[in-house]
Structures are given as structure tokens and as C-alpha cells.
Simulated assay, not measured.
Amino acid sequence: MKVLVIGGAGYIGSHCVRQLVLAGHEPVVMDNLVFGHRDAVSPEIPFHEVDLGDREAVAKILRQESIELVMHFAAFAYVGESVEDPLKYYENNVGKTISLLQAMRDAGVDRFVFSSTCASYGIPESMPMTESLPQNPINPYGQTKLDVERILKACAKAYGLSSASFRYFNAAGAADDGTIGEDHDPETHLIPLAIWAAQGKRDKLTVFGDDYDTPDGTCLRDYIHIDDLSRAHIAVFDKLKKPGQSLFYNLGTGKPVSVMEIIKAVEEVTGLNVPYEMGERRAGDPPALYADSSKAQAELGWTPQFMDIKETIATAWKWHKSHPGGFDN
């Protein structure tokens, strides 16, 4: 299948491109390179440096490349920034996604896979988190993702668009061959920050709170390997053959890991010490967030392969050790 991967030079998008190739599909990448890296995409993959909001240019790509399905990974995703500058997030994450959906209608493309987030649930009522929980986002980032989910439901009824929205937990790790991995600026994810502290690229890691109602007092989160995440997106393709589908899935391992457990695992995998300090709690940080992904497993025949956090960290370590400067190495 010919698949347009928007944001395909970013962390999740580039790994999904790699999995598409391994699964026998033909990816085409579109990225404006604001956050993406051209070197994250093989030169053999067709690449278009185009902005998500350029409706005419996107429609032209869809037609010229004979695209059958679109995957969208091009949202802004910094929670704190979304609070400080919500209009930036609504413009890109909602407004430009509307432009993309209009371009798809212009070009007659009616299958769509959307990168959503567990942040759309806000503070969850229960654990583990199922798709039936109320969605009450507590920040503009989560709200923009929920807004797009609602737009997709409306488009299914009005136009017969078939879509799948995946609500991610914490994407982690890197390609097992070490060729691509996580390279954000700024970096906010715990595993790369812990590795950087171990490498001496930063003085120390800050742990935000150690007085939560959890076994060791630090927050529990669900870390899903980037390749497991990517494979789920491909597993849904057959479900989108029928017009008017609106599918929603949580993607996680269901196996929560604490901040301190991550630190210890990074030390074991790397053989290095992770210097850290205890800081104050961050506003809005729930004690625990982890997924019930049984719906995705049952309906898509998908099962996460990386269930041991050390295996996930080992792939991240392989990337960071061989690319200390990221893609600018």
C-alpha cells in the first residue's frame, strides 16, 4: 500500500516508516523539518518538505504519489508550551489537520491513521486506563488531540472517512539496529534524559516528587517501545477498508514503571551512574498512568513485544551511544 507519513522525519514517524518498509508497504514522507530530521529517513524513500497546512501542495502530493492512506504524526507535543501558547497548538494541531483532511477530500483519499494521546483523558478516574474512560483534558495539547478525534467522528458520518486514532502512553526506545532514535530539542522524555545524565551530557536528572502514593514514592508511567507502537498503526490497515470507520485504541504495555525504576534500569543497562536530585512535584502529574490495551490486542491481533523496560532502554542506549550528537553526530 502507498502510505503518506506526515511528520515522517520525526521520532515516531521515522520509526513507523521503517516498520512500513519491513511490512512490505511503500511509504512516502512529508515533513516541514521544524522538528524532524532529514537523516532519519532513508534517501530511498520519497520525501517532500511541505507544511501540513499547505492544502494545495498536500493534495498534489496525494495525487502524484497515488496515496491510499495517510498517517499523521505532525502535531506539536510539548504540554507546558501548549499552556503558555495555546493558539500555536490550536493552529497547528487542529487548524492544519483540518486543512490536511480537506486536501485528502480534494484528492479522494479516505483512510487516515491519527497519532492521538492518553493526555486526552486528563486525570483518569481509574487504572488501568480503558478507551471507555471519560476524556477531560487538563491542557491545550490534550484538548487539541481530542478535538481532532471528534472531527474524525464527524467526517466518518459526513464523508465516509475511515480513521483510527491511537492514544499513546510513553513512547520509548529506538530502532533495534541503532540507525534511528530519539533526537528532540528540547528533550523532555525521561529515558533519554537519564541516559544523558549517565553520559555526562547534563549535570543531573531531576525527579519531580518522591511522595506519591506509589511503591517507591515516584510517578508510575507506561513505556511502550517505539517499534511496538509503529506496528500497531500498520495492524489497523485492514480495519479501514470499510467506509465510515472511527476506531480508537490505547497503546501501552499495561506494565507501569516508576521514575526510580527507570533510573536503576538505565544504570544496569549502561553500567554508568545516573546522578539525580529530588525536586518538587509538577502541577498536574498524576501518581500513575498506564494503559489497558486489550482492545487493540483483541481487534488488531497486535501484541507488544518489548515488555521488559531494560530491553527498551537497551535499544535507546545503543542509539545514544552511537549517536552522541543525535542526527547531527
Results as ranks from 00 to 15, higher is better:
G7H: 05
G10K: 03
G13A: 01
V17A: 09
L20S: 08
L20I: 13
A23D: 14
E26I: 11
P27C: 02
V28K: 12
A40V: 05
V41C: 03
S42I: 06
P46K: 04
E49M: 10
L52R: 13
G53Q: 09
D54I: 13
L62W: 08
R63H: 00
S66D: 14
F73P: 09
V79K: 15
D85G: 03
K88G: 01
N93L: 08
N93M: 03
I98C: 10
S99F: 12
S99E: 14
M104T: 04
R105Y: 09
A107K: 09
G108M: 04
G108A: 05
D110Y: 14
V113N: 04
S116Q: 11
S116W: 02
A119M: 12
S120A: 14
S120Y: 04
G122N: 09
I123G: 00
M127L: 15
P128D: 04
P128R: 03
M129H: 01
P134K: 07
P134R: 04
Q135Y: 00
Q135E: 11
N136P: 02
N136W: 02
I138H: 12
N139M: 09
G142I: 09
D147Q: 07
R150A: 12
A154Q: 14
A156F: 02
K157N: 09
S162C: 02
S163F: 06
S165E: 06
R167A: 01
Y168G: 11
Y168A: 12
N170M: 12
N170S: 14
G178E: 08
G178D: 05
T179R: 13
D183R: 11
H184C: 01
P186R: 02
P186H: 00
H189C: 10
H189E: 03
H189P: 04
L190T: 12
I191F: 00
P192Q: 04
P192T: 10
I195C: 03
W196N: 11
Q199N: 11
Q199C: 04
L205K: 07
L205Y: 08
T206Y: 02
Y212K: 14
Y212A: 13
D216G: 09
D216V: 14
G217W: 07
Y223M: 01
Y223V: 06
D228G: 10
A232P: 10
H233S: 07
A235Y: 06
F237W: 10
F237G: 05
K239G: 04
L240R: 10
K241Y: 05
K242T: 15
P243I: 00
P243F: 02
S246H: 15
N250R: 11
L251Q: 08
T253M: 07
T253E: 00
G254P: 06
M260C: 02
K264C: 05
A265N: 06
V269C: 04
T270E: 00
G271A: 00
N273I: 11
P275E: 03
P275V: 02
G279M: 10
R281H: 13
G284A: 05
P286N: 04
P287L: 00
L289N: 07
A291C: 09
A291T: 11
A296P: 12
Q297D: 11
L300V: 08
G301C: 06
G301N: 00
W302Y: 06
T303N: 13
T303K: 15
F306M: 15
I309G: 01
K310R: 15
K310N: 00
T312V: 14
T312K: 10
T312L: 04
T312C: 09
I313E: 05
I313M: 07
A314M: 07
T315N: 06
K318A: 10
K318T: 13
H323Q: 06
P324F: 01
G325N: 10
F327W: 08
